[in-house]
Design a binder for these strands. Structure first.
Lengths: 189, 189
DNA sequence: ATTGCAAACTAACAGTTGTTAGTTAAGTGT
DNA sequence: ACACTTAACTAACAACTGTTAGTTTGCAAT
């Protein structure tokens, strides 16, 4: 799916606004004003407000899905797999925090098949993550704690990185990943 | 600030809807319909849609602030303090997950002095939390990792508990807290 | 020069939004 | 029986919503 330059621009501007105020609170006139054009002009490039949301959310969701599938198929250890997933979240956060905020906060405004598709991807993602942790526990690499608590604490941290990453952007991607791996896997005590 | 029964009911119904779709996407007619009355009737009890949001968000924010102030003043160890804060988040999540969702997702729709007040409370909260961690590091109870990464990973997990707690509500408050303390403090490896 | 096209514009639409005004029906206390 | 209060109602408002239709402008290719 290739986008024209102008369409990409609209999607990016919209993502920035959606991050600030949420999908519902941003109007087509807001998006237009941010681009110094009129609202009606947006429709030369996009079909609807919904389409913008779909373009933002689904693309990122598919990227998560694709990488997760690679990781699942690989022969790495559970710990190595988790590290790759941490890296994945950090990379996408650094590259496109606006879209990520949108995915986290506005996915419920998707409709019909898009909503269905998104929810399936998210459920599969969590299931795959769970399977990785479970294998790690079986093989003795991960402590035998409540598995849902483990999954949740890691995923919720990774998913909300976008809120926070500009507060500590002195850290490089690599340094951030290293610290995150230590904190999330080895604990702080 | 005492609320009449009916006002409380409106606030609770609104919080449920806000959790599902976000503040902006919920209309006064939605709230009214959920209570089997007409939108105009809501105004016998509340001043505005904004007032509902303020009642939901500020009350919870103040509760966090108050308990945090107690914890800061106490003579407990850093670890003990963190455990109490984990307990606080879990308790509020179990008691009022709707309001918590609202606080997390819709605080930016507060206006003027309410918005200012909220942001100040949140900043103070984070500063206090940071000071606790810092003390813990100084005293050797906590590993000397990047402090922002530590704060963020714990807080983001605690703050988004509401998304997740009904998936694993087999766990009691106590059991949940114990698992959470182990995972967040001691790590999983 | 003429045509074609991309991308902006103005004007307007039908529906939705939060909110107000004025009214009504059902209790409650005197 | 009476006035008062509570909490619902209908009707309407002005502003805002996403979107469409038709038009204009400037540039590139013929």
């Amino acid at each position: 799916m290739k986008l024209t330059d102008r369409k990409t621009e609209i999607v990016n501007v919209a993502a920035t606004l959606f991050k600030e105020k949420g999908y519902s609170a941003v109007t087509m006139r807001d998006i237009a004003q941010a681009m110094d054009i009129k609202a009606a002009s947006l429709y030369n490039h996009i079909k609807s407000k919904q389409e913008i949301l779909v373009l933002i959310v689904i693309e990122i969701a598919e990227e998560f899905t694709n990488v997760m599938n690679e990781v699942v198929c690989s022969k790495d250890s559970a710990i190595k797999k988790i590290e790759r997933i941490i890296q994945l979240h950090i990379d996408i956060t650094l590259r496109d925090s606006n879209a990520l905020a949108c995915l986290n906060n506005d996915w419920m405004h998707l409709t019909d098949s898009d909503l269905e598709y998104f929810i399936k991807m998210r459920n599969d993602y969590e299931e795959n993550f769970k399977a990785i942790i479970q294998k790690g526990i079986q093989e003795g690499d991960i402590k035998d704690l409540n598995i849902d608590v483990i999954i949740f604490s890691i995923l919720s941290t990774l998913r909300t990185l976008y809120i926070w990453y500009n507060k500590t952007n002195k850290l490089s991607s690599k340094a951030l990943t290293e610290n995150m791996v230590k904190v999330l896997l080895n604990g702080i005590v």
